[in-house]
Computed example of a mutant assay.
Amino acid sequence: MKQHIKQYFQFSRRERNGIFVLLFVLIALIIVSFTVPLWVGTDREEAKQQFEQNALELKQLANEQATTQQSLLKPFNPNTYSLDSLMACGIPKKLAAQIINYRQKVGPFATKADFAKLYNLTDSLYKVYLPFLVLPDAETSKSEKPASRGLVEINTADSLQLLAVKGIGPYFAHKILQYRNQLGGYYSLSQLGEAFTIPVASLAEKQQRMDEIKAQLTVNISRIKKININTATQKQLSAHPYISYKQSSAIPKYIARYGKIKSLDDLTVLGIITTRDAVLLKHYVSF
């Protein structure tokens, strides 16, 4: 009987090795069953903490970028500034082009809220540009008189009124008045570039400074003093910035030979003045 039982429980070397392997696998499975949940829980917690840390860093980076962008911005008027002037104020080229396109197709920006209507301008970006917008917070009443806007009318202003304009000092005020007297008055604010030159390094900065001055001025063309081209002397004609000495001599000769001038076309036909001259002079001559 003992021998029978002994034979029953005897194992070969190969069988014993198999039993040891099974025992090892079983023990390993037991250990893993207890430790894996702990590992998974730890990994999830670490992943959550890492995600929150990354989100915080991204938020800080966005705030730093917004702060950096704000530090580069300068006050700007989206209704009067050119593309180069807007870019000189820190506005990206793509956004500057959108501003120009908006006012050409839709019209001027009436209030700061209108600026938020630009395509693809997010609320966060709008808040970045908001402090630098040279626009009213709310639309003014239609019954409000133009004078209440604080604009200086360039054809009637004296030197003190011009000096009240930001960007105009005594020298610029003198040159504006001097050129106004020579012309008889301004028909466009673009003529200011003929009256004086802004001594700055770059063309963009010069345009920006000029745009800032123009934004504070207005022009009333009814104040222009015109020259009667049929009665003016050669000296009076040559004193005008848009009439050369040669032209001032030819005009009286034309009148003496052909009679009174009825329109500037009479002079362009004979080549006394050019078409461009006629475009400029139409604001300053009468017949």
Rank of each mutant, 00 (worst) to 15 (best):
T197E: 13
L189C: 04
Y8M: 12
E212M: 12
G259P: 07
L38W: 14
P136S: 02
D84A: 13
A116N: 03
I30D: 08
P170I: 08
S244K: 05
V21G: 11
I198V: 08
D43F: 13
P252Q: 05
Q49P: 00
Y242L: 09
T42R: 14
R209D: 15
L95V: 13
K282V: 09
L83K: 05
Q216G: 07
K48W: 14
Y242T: 03
V25P: 10
Y242E: 06
K2V: 12
V25N: 14
N63A: 14
Q178P: 09
I224S: 01
V219K: 01
Q49C: 04
F34P: 11
L264Y: 01
S71K: 04
F24W: 11
A278N: 07
S202M: 03
Y187F: 10
R14T: 15
L264N: 03
F9D: 07
K226L: 00
N79A: 02
Y258E: 15
V152N: 05
M210D: 03
K262M: 11
Q236Y: 01
L130G: 00
V152S: 02
A201L: 15
V165R: 06
F132M: 06
Q191S: 02
N220Y: 09
N220L: 02
T68I: 14
K246P: 09
E144A: 15
L203V: 12
I99P: 11
A215P: 04
Q191K: 04
A157T: 03
L58S: 11
I27A: 15
G41F: 05
A96W: 03
L73N: 01
A204Y: 00
D211H: 02
I229D: 09
I198M: 11
I227G: 04
Q50H: 11
E52N: 14
A147L: 13
E212S: 13
S286R: 09
E15Q: 10
A113Q: 14
S33E: 10
V152M: 05
L203T: 14
P146D: 11
P252E: 00
K262S: 13
K142F: 15
R257D: 12
I213K: 05
S263Y: 00
L38R: 15
L121G: 01
I176L: 07
